[in-house]
Computed example of a mutant assay.
Amino acid sequence: MTATVAIGEFARLTRLSVKTLRYYHEIELLEPVAVAAGTGYRRYSTAQVEQAHLIRRLRDLDMPLPQIRAVLAAADPADRDAALREHLAEMEAELERTRAVVTSLRALLTVPAPAIRVNYLAEPSFTALTFTETVDRGAIGDWCGTAFDQLYQTLTAAGVTPGGIAGATYSTEFFTDDTGAVTAYVPLPTGTEFEPMPGLEISELPARRFAVAVHSGAFEDFDRTYGALGSHVAEHDTVLPGEPVRERYLVGPDRTDNPADYRTEVCWPITEGESR
């Protein structure tokens, strides 16, 4: 047996405020079973209590309202459960990221930055399979995963073995504007010829001289390596204006499941000549 109750009583049953219930009505997320024509008073069924509890829990998990609507509208329990599992997986990933940032912050506050070892590299020009797009800084992790998947899948389909260590170049705008051109690349063996899939190119990366430092571990502390290497260059060398920074992924997600084992070579472009 069910009954109907006024909005104030329904708020007490569900621990959702009257303001929240009115908003959910406006966006058609949780609609009352009846609205009085003259007064506009809302009445809810006690059969809606469980649904209201579900909405409150999902909002406590920061699930976006459109996703909650999809969960409530799912006729198949399997579809509903799949949407809930997807959101929980996203939350778990965010929790891992938060833990990593907290660990990094503690290290920043308590552990002195290790002395950086800077080497110099005169890299000759080379041919690479490349993928270039304008990328937002916050999306770079996902973008790199997709970009390198495409590059390696293309090479595998063409029967081509990579000719060197994969990497990426990052334009100045990527750092100054939080969005800019990024080129993911995989070096090719000399003389390799094939037709890449649309969106990819076979490009010549120019010869450059770099100051180089290796970052070990996950990317939460990447800024410390950038800061130390960039400071060294400012103090001892001359930056090559407008030239992208290169990163080379000595050990990355394709070769280890443990971010602590990542090793990334940061290559800071400098002018030719002796360091000062």
Rank of each mutant, 00 (worst) to 15 (best):
A6K: 13
P259G: 05
D60H: 10
Q67T: 08
V111I: 14
A234G: 02
L65A: 10
A260W: 00
T46M: 12
E201G: 04
G138E: 14
A113F: 07
D257P: 04
T264F: 05
A89E: 02
I202L: 09
T39P: 02
I7R: 11
T134W: 02
T130E: 04
T169M: 11
L129I: 03
F126I: 13
V102A: 15
A157G: 02
L250M: 13
R224S: 08
T156N: 01
L21F: 08
V135L: 08
P112C: 10
M91Y: 00
V101N: 13
R209D: 01
A73R: 15
L205V: 03
A213K: 04
V186P: 02
Q153K: 10
H236Q: 14
L129D: 01
A3I: 09
T169G: 07
H215D: 07
L95D: 11
Y262C: 05
R15E: 13
I55M: 09
L240D: 15
D149T: 04
H232E: 04
V182Y: 03
D62T: 14
Y152L: 15
I165E: 14
T179W: 01
V245L: 13
G242W: 13
V214A: 12
P64Y: 11
A211Y: 01
D136S: 11
Y249K: 07
A70G: 06
R117W: 00
A47F: 03
P198A: 04
C267Y: 00
L30Y: 03
L108F: 07
A70N: 13
E31F: 02
L58T: 06
D178W: 02
T176L: 12
I165R: 07
R276F: 08
T183E: 06
L151T: 05
T161K: 14
